[in-house]
Design a protein around this nucleic acid. Structure first.
Length: 385
DNA sequence: TGCCATTCTGGTATACAGGT
DNA sequence: ACCTGTATACCAGAATGGCA
């Protein structure tokens, strides 16, 4: 910390102030338990009406897998449009009768959960009837469809997923059990609490920024090297594609502490996609973009252009595979690209040079290069996207 | 019959836990 | 040291169904 002049930290303060003025903090409106229960009841009443009219019962929900149903709002993220295409599953349709049955079954399970105030993981739900559901991913899909159908975040249905992300550094909070937790005391990072909504009293002593890291390996390495003691910051990793809890926690940290959030990803199509999921939100969770997207996040690297700028040798980079290239083209087609010219430029860059690199490639220069040179200089020079 | 949309399956990537 | 199973998320392509 002493190696950086005061102006360095002042700049971060200015940046933080600017972010707070640019991006709005979203307070989730509180929907009472009875309201959620009555929304489920309404769905069931509809089914009864359909049956008594002599029709095959059906359910409708907003389609979360089509890009046509999503729009990009700058400073917000990827949002489900107001009038999206609806998917209909019906008892009378051979292709969807199975899903219809499972959806009704899960609706009843969720209703009981909310009524009794119990919380279950998606895995718990699956193992109640493993033969019926046949696979975990089917339960995952349907639960998310139900949350979209009755317009509440999944966690409010008392259905959670075990957390995957880790957090470390100068951060203290009161966890859902009421215990005060100090992340700086844990040498290898603390698992993000499952009921992250109930995390409160988020505080820090000195942290000036949050650094989001794609991979666990890099996260651990930075911790081992004492990155958080040299730089007053908070480290977070989602271990690859981030789960919902990790993204909510980062959002909460920003809400409370009002400090800049930086992202460090691989310089490959997959790394860029993960950056997009953090920053703009994912397509399949676009109905809950306000509590998930991090539009204020700044991508500090590794940029595809860094491969040539830093002259990374060929033996630590790889040519793009066919799948990488198609992933690039895929990201190009997404609605947020036209608002972020430099992001598009970096994608072009990667396709043109036909090279990708992982964060670990920077260790070619020296083991400490990432912590002592790369990250500080990116922040100092405001070299982010 | 061919087209389009929807649904399902299997593949990608990340990482950890536990058994052989 | 490897393999299987667990978790997260996303996407490509096959299979299916409705409609002109």
């Amino acid at each position: 910390m002493n190696t950086f002049p005061k102006t360095f930290w002042d700049k971060l303060d200015d940046l933080a102030q600017n972010d707070v003025e640019t991006y709005s903090k979203f307070e989730q409106p509180d929907i009472p338990r009875d309201e959620i229960l009555s929304r489920i009841e309404d769905e069931v009443v509809d089914l009864v009406h359909q049956i008594s009219n002599g029709d095959s019962p059906w359910l409708q929900f907003r389609n979360r897998s089509s890009w046509k149903n999503a729009m990009y709002l700058p400073n917000v993220g990827l949002k489900l449009i107001e009038d999206p295409n609806l998917t209909t599953i019906s008892f009378g349709n051979e292709g969807s009768v199975n899903k219809f049955g499972l959806t009704v079954k899960l609706l009843s399970m969720i209703y009981k959960l909310i009524q009794s105030g119990q919380v279950a993981t998606k895995r718990d739900l699956y193992y109640e009837e493993p033969n019926l559901f046949s696979s975990q991913s089917i339960v995952d899909h349907i639960v998310d469809d139900i949350s979209c159908m009755i317009c509440v975040p999944r966690r409010w249905l008392n259905v959670v997923a075990t957390s995957k992300g880790l957090v470390a550094g100068d951060l203290q909070f009161v966890d859902p059990d009421g215990q005060t937790v100090d992340c700086s005391l844990n040498q290898s990072g603390l698992v993000v609490p499952v009921l992250v909504d109930n995390v409160s009293n988020i505080k820090t002593q000195h942290a000036k920024f949050v650094l989001v890291i794609e991979k666990d390996a890099t996260f651990q390495r930075l911790l081992d090297q004492g990155f958080t003691t040299n730089m007053p910051c908070i480290l977070v990793t989602g271990k690859g594609v981030p789960d919902v809890n990790t993204r909510i926690l980062i959002r909460k940290i920003w809400n409370e502490l009002e400090i800049p959030v930086f992202g460090l990803m691989d310089a490959d199509p997959h790394g860029i996609e993960i950056m997009c999921v953090y920053r703009f939100g994912s397509l399949s969770q676009s109905h809950d973009v306000h509590s998930l997207a991090l539009p204020f996040m700044k991508w500090i690297g590794v940029f595809p252009s860094d491969i040539t700028r830093l002259r990374l040798p060929d033996d630590v980079t790889l040519p793009l595979s066919d799948k990488d290239k198609s992933k690039c083209r895929d990201i190009f087609a997404r609605p947020y690209i036209e608002y972020h010219a430099r992001l598009a430029e970096e994608l072009h860059n990667m396709l043109r040079c036909d090279r990708k690199a992982e964060i670990q490639a920077l260790m070619r220069f020296s083991p400490n290069y990432l912590a002592q040179v790369f990250i500080p200089s990116k922040i100092k020079n405001a070299n982010w996207i």
